[in-house]
Design a protein around this nucleic acid. Structure first.
Lengths: 107, 107
DNA sequence: CAACTTGTGCTAATTAAAATAGAACAATAT
DNA sequence: ATATTGTTCTATTTTAATTAGCACAAGTTG
């Protein structure tokens, strides 16, 4: 799993858990990059990914602000862990499940 | 999505649909490679992925034989499309959802 | 037994994506 | 004004995927 996707996933995870709320600001890209010792562009790429999904609003000088869209992520807060639990029970691997979902999405 | 993952995903999709059954044999790697005009190693890599998941039994001379494990895949035949439908409703993108699942798996 | 099929293992070359690096710039905030 | 923060650009390095070809081992088939 690419680094920039991991970063985005981490933010989504917080969104589902309700840790981050609309209006809240994510730490500046340069800040995140410094603390994790990775490149700024990698962080920005993750942020731009989240913007494309409508999860954050990205502006110069202000940073990455969480949108109202987060609430919708919370609605999946139950369904996702449920499916994952079911998959684990069956012994289905992570990317076996994710691949199935990608397949379902396309059809 | 990598080619070898697409191949594996396609087989899993058939497994969930019930198109392939235990004991059945997947077409030989060289055969698949020729018909899709891709490299044999790519197909083999997909097959080995499926073996790690316990979906197929891989042996020289015989080929890739589907195991009894397939039945368990069928149990997810309902849950997966359900979650995907819900995600689509909310406007959640494909890899936003898959990333969330990966995150859930890890925790 | 012999011939054929099929996955396994190996090395190597090519291609594509990701990550890093550094700089200049534009919009926003303070 | 000054500092902050995302945007854009080019370039390089690193990593993963794909292709390629070959020899080999374990099965199947006649």
């Amino acid at each position: 799993m690419p680094l920039f996707e991991q970063l985005a996933a981490s933010v989504r995870f917080d969104a589902v858990k309700g840790t981050i709320r609309p209006g809240e600001r994510l730490p500046a890209a340069r800040e995140v990059a410094a603390s994790l010792d990775i490149n700024v562009h990698t962080v920005l790429r993750a942020y731009q990914l989240l913007r494309e999904e409508g999860l954050v609003d990205l502006r110069r000088g202000r940073g990455a602000v969480v949108t109202d869209h987060v609430a919708q992520y919370g609605e999946l807060g139950d369904a996702v862990p449920l499916l994952v639990a079911q998959a684990k029970e069956v012994g289905l691997g992570v990317h076996a499940l994710t691949a199935m979902i990608r397949q379902e999405y396309g059809s």
